[in-house]
């Protein structure tokens, strides 16, 4: 099946850029620097276009021109004050914009943080240790695989209290306090280990995605860009190493 020209070209570009970035595993080199700067430029350009579309067009121009929402000129003026940073004599005007953003942010944060991140978290931590069955008896669930089981509820309670105690320095960590703090350290270490393992596997998943693309682009329908560009990348690295110029200039 013949692929459209833009898809084939896209395959070649994507393969080249992927290999250029992966060449960093050998050492820092001009091919990597080229791809790295292109990445910054393209992602910045993409952000500019998306911001222009969502902010300038959707939030400012269309509501003003189509619905006559002239009140939107107020945030535009506040935002424009930020640009006075470039005029030293008028730079203090930018404080109004920052004061507005910081004030609103702080005001929004107080009740919502207390409600969602403090009270709700405490509520979910301090749960009943037993449950009442329909026949009036009490039950205690032991299943470790069920995060809502009573046993796990106790473990979570111990974890939260011991970690909070570890970070509480108003009381000396001695005697029973030392034991609680040490339990907090063990919980923290397990969490850090889990976070590390999870991150590594997430990165591996991304790598598998890139390698899958490289395998797809090694197909004859694309003109085997993976093979040719791999050879080209390796040859370039060999030439650069021989010339002693693999190290790009210091930034």
């Amino acid at each position: 099946m013949d692929l459209p020209f833009e898809v084939i070209l896209g395959g070649w570009i994507a393969t080249g850029l992927t290999l250029f970035i992966l060449s960093f595993l050998y050492e820092d080199n001009p091919l990597f620097k080229l791809a790295e700067h292109l990445y910054v430029g393209v992602s910045l350009g993409y952000t500019i276009v998306k911001t222009y579309d969502t902010v300038v067009m959707t939030l400012i121009l269309r509501p003003i021109l189509d619905k006559g929402e002239w009140s939107l000129l107020i945030p535009v003026c506040i935002g424009a004050l930020m640009l006075t940073r470039y005029v030293p004599k008028a730079a203090w005007l930018s404080r109004y914009a920052f004061a507005f953003i910081v004030g609103v942010g702080a005001g929004l944060a107080i009740p919502r943080t207390i409600s969602s991140f403090i009270l709700k978290q405490i509520e979910d931590t301090v749960r009943p240790l037993l449950a009442i069955t329909p026949d009036g008896g009490v039950t205690f669930t032991y299943s470790l695989l069920d995060p809502a089981s009573h046993l796990n509820g106790i473990i979570i309670l111990v974890g939260v209290v011991s970690v909070l105690f570890y970070f509480f320095f108003s009381v000396e960590h001695a005697g029973p306090g030392k034991m609680i703090a040490r339990a907090g350290i063990v919980f923290l270490m397990i969490s850090f280990g889990a976070a590390f393992g999870y991150t590594v596997m997430a990165r591996m998943s991304l790598l598998i995605g890139r390698l899958t693309d490289l395998i797809e682009f090694s197909d004859a329908s694309y003109g085997r860009p993976t093979l040719w560009l791999f050879l080209l990348t390796v040859a370039t690295l060999i030439v650069l190493t021989r010339r002693g110029s693999t190290h790009p200039p210091k930034q």
Binding site: T113, I118, Q121, L144, I155, V161, V163, L164, F187
Partner: peptide, 20 residues
């Protein structure tokens, strides 16, 4: 879901108190 969640919860409570 359990050990990591408890630590995250404790850190979240601490950070939130600081943020408030």
């Amino acid at each position: 879901n359990v050990l990591n969640a408890s630590v995250r919860r404790a850190i979240l409570i601490g950070v939130s108190l600081g943020a408030v």
